[in-house]
């Protein structure tokens, strides 16, 4: 139902979004994954008609939004990355205003406010001023405000940055429910792998303005089907040993941490023998070895040579 076609945005000398083609089907939950500065927010601004593309197009139900953004705006609920609320007002007052913008009034307005407050679990604190809320609660109102006009498609730009785990779980659960139980179409942007893995049917991975991979979680992980990740923990730090292990022939990538090491190796490579041999030689004690199935994080690492949080 929603499609972007070679969407491109150029700011003076940065190519923020480069030839991005996405598609959202009805009822789907799609993740847009990418590190800081990948161009996620810029892409979303263009999709939601707030920013004109340098080239390319955005279509809703087959109609371009460039000439008439009205159709898109009616369908879309946008949860911005920054909290966009009147913080000197209460949650209730904020929602009332955003509802009125869409022509809601009277009983219908009150009902809708009640519904979205329930949805984000803030009914009993609706009279408090937004500025007195915790970061997590503000995020929840930020979502609620985008839900006032019963949108068909919900676009969220990193709705969970900087909030406590409890609020985060609540928010993720809310989104999952909206998608599963109410059939809402969701585009979810994040640089947290776990969230996207948990929430989304399909994923686009963006880096430096480009979509570098797309598909269902399984399809993406299949990229790594010929790989394994071995995670080794030691009793203490052994920089020299870690360096040595990283340089073993066949190791494709190494991620060194304080007392542990993550090595990406081809499936079937016989690493363990040399691992224990080297550890013995350095007098190091291996406390834990774990062979992992690949995560999206590993996919990103493989595709870009960097971790998402770099």
């Amino acid at each position: 139902m929603l499609k972007t076609d070679k969407l491109t945005k150029k700011f003076k000398d940065t190519l923020a979004v480069d030839n991005v083609s996405l598609e959202l089907r009805k009822g789907e939950s799609v993740g847009l994954l990418g590190p800081n500065g990948a161009g996620k927010s810029t892409a979303i601004a263009m999709i939601s008609t707030l920013l004109k593309p340098s080239s390319g197009d955005v279509r809703i139900h087959g109609k371009s939004v460039l000439k008439d953004p009205g159709d898109m705006r009616r369908v879309l609920g946008v949860v911005p990355q920054k909290i966009a609320l009147y913080e000197e007002l209460s949650a209730y007052e904020n929602l009332k205003f955003f509802g009125r913008l869409y022509g809601l009034s009277g009983k219908k307005l009150e009902q809708r406010i009640g519904y979205v407050l329930d949805l984000v679990g803030l009914s009993d604190r609706k009279k408090e001023l937004v500025k007195h809320y915790s970061g997590g609660m503000q995020r929840r109102v930020n979502l609620a405000a985008a839900m006032m006009h019963e949108p068909e498609v919900l676009i969220m730009d990193e709705p969970t940055v900087g909030i406590d785990p409890q609020s985060r779980n609540h928010l993720l659960e809310t989104i999952r429910r909206l998608n599963h139980e109410e059939g809402m179409t969701v585009l979810y942007t994040s640089h947290y792998m776990e969230e996207v893995e948990k929430l989304c049917d399909r994923v686009y991975i963006m880096d430096r303005g480009k979509v570098i991979a797309e598909g269902t979680k399984e399809e993406l992980k299949a990229i790594l089907s010929d790989q394994e990740t071995v995670w080794i923990e030691f009793d203490q730090s052994y920089p020299e040993l870690f360096k040595k292990l990283s340089e073993i022939e066949g190791v494709q990538h190494a991620d060194v941490e304080e007392r542990s090491l993550k090595l990406m190796i081809p499936k079937g490579m016989r690493l363990l023998a040399s691992l224990f041999h080297e550890a013995e030689r350095h007098g190091a004690q291996v406390t834990n070895v774990h062979v992992q199935t690949p995560t999206l994080e590993d996919v990103f690492l493989r595709l870009t040579g960097r971790t998402l949080r770099d």
């Binding site: 008609t49 911005p80 920054k82 909290i83 966009a84 955003f98 913008l101 869409y102 405000a145």
Partner: peptide, 13 residues
């Protein structure tokens, strides 16, 4: 700056 303006732009107003 805060983004409430964008919210209004997205509305029918």
């Amino acid at each position: 700056r805060t983004g409430t303006w964008n919210r209004m732009i997205l509305s029918p107003v």
